[in-house]
Design a binder for these strands. Structure first.
Lengths: 338, 338
DNA sequence: ATGAAAGCGCTAACAG
DNA sequence: CTGTTAGCGCTTTCAT
């Protein structure tokens, strides 16, 4: 079912069909009718692949993610809520390489899709810098370092400070931190927030209590296990994202530690899943839906050729207190004594 | 950055570059080296649009949805969890037309993408029948009527029976049902389950308590409001999906009704959001992640040319009791009297 | 072992 | 107003 079929059926040339489909003028009303009728009858829809190759624009925007996991799909829903009221269509692409090395997935995905299939894109947690190009691009929670494209993120520093303060408030002193992906600015800021929060409370950070979890539950498993089997194990863990916080609770369970009785755990992100764990996870909430929506609004502005006045949008984070954090054992006396 | 750039840089023809990229043999090792080096240096990745036009296969599978909402993104995550360990890449496409009429979105999306961009697809809640074609296709929670493609769904009938029984158990007699999208088999089965459940309890279904919510919170608002402002309003509402159940709780709140004190509400799906409402929503859980995963496994089998032994997979549903349902006022005496 | 050339489905100049 | 023609970037015969 191609444009040629339609042309033959309607008794015109493919060029004429193309004009009718794309609403170009210079076609007799009668011919338009006839072609439209055939298009409808045959249910013809032009192939994105072919169209995109020839035409400059496709009317399709992309949300490019490393993987389809809770974080990125929340963003996707937010982006969709905005784009659905625009004339653009939306696709999402998971560019993470299979098992192997994830670095540069965004560049590969972009090379693959930009220019041909999509007219603009939102990059979710890109790990490497994109040169400013004419291709409309918005980054969400981007990499460390100077940024050349408009971006949206949450107040990672403030959120991490709040998380740390919450644990300190509960009387914890031996607090572990499970770092995120070192290539991401968010991970850097969350660690910085943790350290600042500890310093503000007059607490030293024990280097053995800081491990790298990479935001990834699988890669985080060993560091978590190491942390929880330490001779002098922490009474609280601040994991840089919910996925690794949840993994921490699982491993604690396997080791016979009760959360929050023996161990308090706090995460970051507030993905929907964090409310479903037992006990429900205390975490720092990022407005993921709003982040996706804000990024899409910026992208649409870019598409319209507008200059985005504020190229870097930062949204608020909030402490979401649930059940996975509790006063440290002997906390009250400690604090009174200290 | 095209294959021509690479060819020029490497001092060979585009044909040779193409062969090297695609691992075809008949290229001198030295030439391969040289081309690979240039490809890496320039970061060249072939354009999906162009490649798909010419080649028979792209190595990309698609999850085609009407919209990116909680239901479809849960499926997406499940599908991803399987495809990530396969050689295929994954894209997702939201085919819902903007505001207008949604019928036939799956056919349009398929026409747009199949054959060129993607090698196979999972259709999430397709509303119209697809003829069996050579194009690998798996449907999730499909339309009413005879099915020509492999499909995956949950035990909608059993789930609806359980939901109804739960409300009856709590002593409710005036139970309203908010129907789903009439074009979907799931909606038909859930209504059937409701009616069977009522009959089993010896309860009559009051026709004025059965309204159409279309699975859509916006379209459901008026029917819900009508239901809750009825002279003799129901003491419990069974909504055909969580999204409209949540909307029911919102509207109840606006009308000054307390849930579950004045009104019990039960949903269907157990999307993550249902645990986050206040009160948390009692619902029938579908294993959405597993459904997506099962569909992807079937699709991969199809891709491998295997005959799927069991072309229709049905997964279990479970009652998830949370806070939005409670005994009907005066229930105990009613039941004893009855 | 390599390259020239055809063509995938479509759009956009340009002729007629 | 309509059709012919030339590619978009790529893969694939088929010569060389």
């Amino acid at each position: 079912m191609t444009i040629t079929d339609v042309a033959r059926e309607a008794g015109v040339s493919v060029a004429t069909v193309s004009k009718v489909i794309n609403g170009r003028d210079g076609v007799a009303p009668a011919t338009q009718e006839r072609v439209h009728a055939v298009v409808t009858r045959l249910g013809f829809v032009s192939s994105l692949g072919a169209r995109s190759l020839r035409a400059q624009r496709t009317g399709v925007l992309g949300v490019l993610v490393n993987e389809f996991e809770p974080y990125s799909t929340e963003i996707l829903k937010g982006a969709w809520s905005v784009v659905r009221d625009s004339p653009y269509e939306l696709m999402s692409w998971a560019g993470g390489t299979h098992g192997g090395d994830h670095t540069g997935w965004e560049r590969r995905s972009l090379a693959r899709l930009a220019g041909t299939l999509i007219d603009g894109a939102i990059l979710v947690t890109p790990s490497i810098s994109e040169r400013r190009t004419s291709f409309p691009l918005v980054a969400i929670d981007p990499h460390t370092g100077p940024l050349e494209v408009p971006s949206v993120d949450a107040d990672n520093l403030g959120g991490a400070l709040a998380a740390t303060a919450h644990l300190v408030e509960l009387g914890h002193r031996r607090i572990a931190f499970l770092c995120g992906r070192s290539d991401l600015e968010s991970a850097r800021l969350r660690e910085q927030g943790f350290r600042k929060g500890m310093a503000a409370a007059g607490l030293e950070v024990d280097p053995s209590l800081v491990r790298v979890g990479d935001y990834d539950p699988e890669r985080a498993s060993t560091p978590i296990r190491d942390l929880l089997t330490l001779e002098d194990r922490p009474t609280a863990v601040f994991a840089a994202n919910d996925l690794t916080a949840i993994r921490t609770m699982e491993i604690a369970g396997e080791l016979g530690l009760r959360v929050p009785g023996d161990l308090s755990v706090i995460g970051f992100d507030n993905i929907p899943e964090s409310a479903l764990t037992t006990p429900a996870l205390t975490t720092i909430g990022q407005p993921l839906h709003d982040i996706g929506a804000a990024a899409m609004r910026m992208l649409l502005a870019l598409m319209a050729g507008e200059d985005v006045a504020e190229p870097h949008v930062r949204l608020r984070t909030t402490l979401v207190t649930r059940e996975s954090t509790a006063p440290a054992v002997g906390a009250r006396s400690d604090r009174l004594a200290g």
